[in-house]
Structures are given as C-alpha cells and as structure tokens.
C-alpha cells in the first residue's frame, strides 16, 4: 500500500506527464476515467490562459493556442490556486517555443497581456497624494523610494504591440494595416477606478517611472530620465505621478555609506 504522498506524486505524473506506470496497479479503473481528470486539468487551465491572453490566442488561432497552452501547463503547472495569477512566464515560454519563432512580436504581445491581467486583480492599495512628501527633508529627497501601486507595470517593445493588441481584441477600432517597421513603443499599464488602462509614454517619462517601479531611488530614476532627455522636468514628472494615482508608498533608502560620519 503506497503512502498518500507517493500516490499523489504518481497521480501528478500520470496527469501531467502521461506516465501511468506508477498508478496502474493502484486504481480499479484507469484509462478513460483518468482522462476525465486529465482533461479537467488541461482544459480548465487552457481556458484560464486564453482568458488572460486573448490577443495572443487570436494571433495564433485557438487550436494552436490550445496546443501551446497544453505544453506550457505540462512544463509549468500553477504554483497557486488563484488562477487569475497563473500565466507568469507564458510570454517567455512563447519566445522560446519553436513553432512561434516566426512571430517575433508574439512574446511582447503576451507580456503586455500579462501586465494587463495582473493589473486587473493586483492587490488594492490607496493611492497617495503629493502631500505624502511634505515631511521629507530636502537633503533626503535623492534617496526617496516611491513604491508604485501593485497594478502598475511597464513594457518597452521594439514592436507596436499596443496597436497589434487593439487590432486583435475583436473591436474594429484600429483595423488599419500595421507597419511592423514603424518602430516600438513604451507602455504603462495601470488601474484607475478598477479599470485597467494602457497608455504610451515618451522616453524620459518611461525611464523615470520604470526605474521607480524597479525599486530605484528618486535620484536614480531622475538620472535615467535625464539620460533620455536632458530637459527632463523632475518636479512636473513627480506631480504627474501622484496625480495619476500611481504612488502607493513612500520610504527612504538607507543613506549611502560615505555619508556616515
């Protein structure tokens, strides 16, 4: 008689890897009845991915998407039961998936859809007003850390993925032919009043916000923006960031070592 842990490991192999050898002697009925569980697993998770990646599904067609999703589920099953959070890594998987190699922009469309899916159900957080900075001493300003709202995400792509995404969402809003050579785009995905929003940013604004999102200090973010545009207006950029409801926390990075007396 197998221990429960062994049986569950064997069942997992039978479902994910179609290796029923360890299970065969343990069940009264195998075969088609095990297929019911296997089908529940792959069909439900395939549907979860199709819901989170609708434009990718349309770009490759539903049948191929189901095949790609099956392979992804097999190799990267969910680690959590909250399935709205399943699909991280699907874009990287598509980038490496040989049948998709000709669709160079596909992985970036998937990255965009993942950020939008995450934005929809990311944790709630009250946005801070600019007054949150009132108590910060001017000398501490460079090491300010602005924690962005959990729904916020950033994507820079060499492809016009925002236009590709709109053209593949069923709405006829943007059906003009898309010139892939037209150049890339820098996108911000956020959430306001529980609606996910995507918009294009210019190079300095993207550099500034993306640096903050990665945990950089205000000084590091300002330098990144100034590299993109020497005329970058830090005060205005900060005001816009708070106005957009993008800031959920304010903290100070530890002082640099050389300032210790």
């Amino acid at each position: 008689m197998p221990a429960l842990a062994e049986l569950q490991a064997a069942f997992r192999r039978a479902l994910l890897e179609e290796d029923e050898s360890a299970l065969a002697g343990l069940v009264e009925e195998g075969g088609a009845r095990l297929d019911i569980h296997r089908n529940n697993l792959f069909a439900s998770l395939g549907a979860v991915l199709a819901e989170s990646f609708p434009a990718v599904c349309r770009l490759v067609d539903a049948r191929f998407f189901a095949y790609a999703a099956h392979e992804f589920v097999r190799r990267h099953p969910p680690r959590r039961a909250v399935l709205a959070e399943y699909g991280e890594g699907f874009a990287d998987f598509l980038a490496e998936f040989p049948p998709c190699r000709d669709l160079a922009y596909l992985a970036d469309v998937a990255r965009l859809e993942w950020l939008m899916a995450r934005a929809a159900t990311a944790a709630d957080a009250a946005p801070l007003a600019a007054e949150a900075l009132a108590g910060v001493a001017p000398a501490d300003t460079p090491r300010l850390l602005l924690r962005l709202h959990p729904a916020w995400g950033f994507l820079a792509s060499p492809w016009p993925v925002d236009r590709i995404w709109r053209a593949n969402r069923g709405a006829a809003s943007d059906m003009a032919p898309i010139d892939l050579a037209q150049g890339g785009v820098r996108l911000e995905i956020g959430r306001s009043d529980n609606e996910v929003a995507m918009r294009a940013l210019d190079a300095p604004a993207f550099a500034f916000r993306a640096a903050l999102a990665q945990g950089g200090t205000l000084e590091e973010a300002a330098i990144a923006a100034l590299i993109a545009d020497p005329e970058f207006d830090l005060a205005a950029a900060l005001a816009r960031l708070f106005h957009d409801g993008a800031v959920a926390g304010v903290a100070l990075a530890p002082p640099a070592a050389e300032t210790v007396p």
């Binding site: 008689m1 221990a3 429960l4 049986l7 569950q8 490991a9 069942f11 997992r12 479902l15 994910l16 343990l26 569980h37 529940n40 697993l41 439900s44 998770l45 979860v48 099953p77 969910p78 680690r79 959590r80 039961a81 399935l83």
Partner: peptide, 25 residues
C-alpha cells in the same frame, strides 16, 4: 479531495484513497 502535489496546483478535485492514513491527513 486534493489538488496539490509537490507544490503544483493541478486544478481539479482529485480523488483520495479512503484509508486510516488519509483520514489522519
């Protein structure tokens, strides 16, 4: 039922053997 083995969430309500060990688990 069970859904998790080695940290993987298998998204189905999977069957259990009804034994004293399972009862304790």
């Amino acid at each position: 039922s069970w859904s998790v083995a080695s940290g993987a969430y298998l998204n189905d309500l999977l069957p259990l053997p009804y034994t004293e060990e399972t009862l304790a688990v």
